[in-house]
Design a protein around this nucleic acid. Sequence first.
DNA 1: TAGTTCATGTAATGAGTTACATGATTAT
DNA 2: ATAATCATGTAACTCATTACATGAACTA
Lengths: 196, 196
Amino acid sequence: MPRKSKSRYALLGMLNMTSMSGYEIKNLCDKSISHFWSENYSNIYPLLKKMEAEGAVTMEKFQQESRPDKKVYTITDSGRQEFKDWLHQIPEIRKLREELLLQVFYGNMLSPKKLMEKIEHRKTHCEDVLHNLDDINTYLTEELSNESQPEIQSEIPYWKLSLDFGLRFYTAELEWCDAAMQELKRLAQEDNSSNE
Amino acid sequence: MPRKSKSRYALLGMLNMTSMSGYEIKNLCDKSISHFWSENYSNIYPLLKKMEAEGAVTMEKFQQESRPDKKVYTITDSGRQEFKDWLHQIPEIRKLREELLLQVFYGNMLSPKKLMEKIEHRKTHCEDVLHNLDDINTYLTEELSNESQPEIQSEIPYWKLSLDFGLRFYTAELEWCDAAMQELKRLAQEDNSSNE
DNA sequence: TAGTTCATGTAATGAGTTACATGATTAT
DNA sequence: ATAATCATGTAACTCATTACATGAACTA
C-alpha cells in the first residue's frame, strides 16, 4: 500500500469549519495546529486546485485591487464525506528520525562540551515552542470563548487536547535536555579527574 | 540549501564501531537506535555502494556456501573525517506530523467513543515501544557490560542517554493518552446528560 | 509446513521541502 | 529602508518507503 498524503484531510478539516482561501488556510494552520502539523503554500495551492478538479471543494473568485484574485474554497458534500471517512480510520504512526539523538548515541566521539551545546540548542527550541503553545492557548481561551458560537465552543475541548499533547511532548523533551546536561557535566568531570 | 540525507552518518557511525555487512548494520540499528532512527535494506545497500564509490568505506567480499557473498564494509580515514565533521554540526530539528493529533483536533466531528479507540491504539503502541526499550536497556546493561572492552564501556553512557530520551518521550505520550481518555470520558458523559 | 534468519539488491512511487517568481501595501 | 502582510503559484529535488526479486537453511 503506497503511503497517502494526509495534507488533504488537514485542508478539508479547515474548510469544514469555514470557507477560506489558501492563504487563510495557511494562516489558520500556523495559529492552531502548527505544533504537530505544518503545511506550506507550495503544498496548499496545488492541492486545492486538485481537490477542486476532483469535486471535494468548490472555488469562487473575488476581485481585489492591486492584488491577485482571492480564491475562496468551500467544501462540498463529497469532500465532507471523504473527510469523515478519513476521521474513522486508524491514523498512521510515524517513525521518529532524530538527528540529535543519533549524535548523542555516537557522542563518545565528541567532547561533552560540544554535545552540551547541541542539547542547549534543542532546549531553547523546546522553550520557544512552549511559548508558542502558550500563545495558542491564550488565543483559544480568550478570543474564541468570546465568540460564543456554539459550534466553536464544542470544538475547544478537542483543540485543548491537541494542545496538551504538545505541552507534554515538549516539556518531556525539555526535561530530557536538563537531565542530559547534568549527566554530561558529570561525564566531563570524570574525564578531567581521570586525566589528573 | 537542499536537505541532506542523514542515513549516511548513521551508517558511518555504525561502521566506525566495527566493520560490518549491510545486513549486520541493519540488525545493529534495529537493536540499538530503532526507537529514534530506522533504516531499511533498500536504503542501506545502495548507500553502502555509493559510499564505497566515494571512498568513505572499503569493501571486502567473503565467500559463503549456499548464500550470497557477504560484503563486509570498513570505514576509511576520509569516511571517519566526514563522520566527525557531521558530528560537529548542529542537527536538524524536524517538524512533527501527527495524524492522530489532526484527528483529535477535528475530534468534534467524531464520537468520543471512536476517538477513544484511536487513543487506546496509540497507547498500546507506546507500551510496545517502552517494552522494546526495556529490552535494549537489558542488552546494554547485561551483555555489553560483560564484554569489558574499554572502547565500548565509554560508549554506554551515551547509549543510555539516547535510551532515556525514548523512555521520557514515550512515557509522556502514554500519559497524554491516559489524560485524553479521561477527558473524553467526561465529554461523553456531558453529552449523555445533556441528551436526557 | 510455515515462519524466521541469512544475504543481497532494483524499481517505482510519492510525499514534502526548497528555491524560484511576482508585486503592491502597510507598518516599524 | 526594511520587514511583514497579502496573495498566488511553478519547478525541481531528494528523501524514504514499498513492492518486487531470489533463494537456501534452520526452527517450531
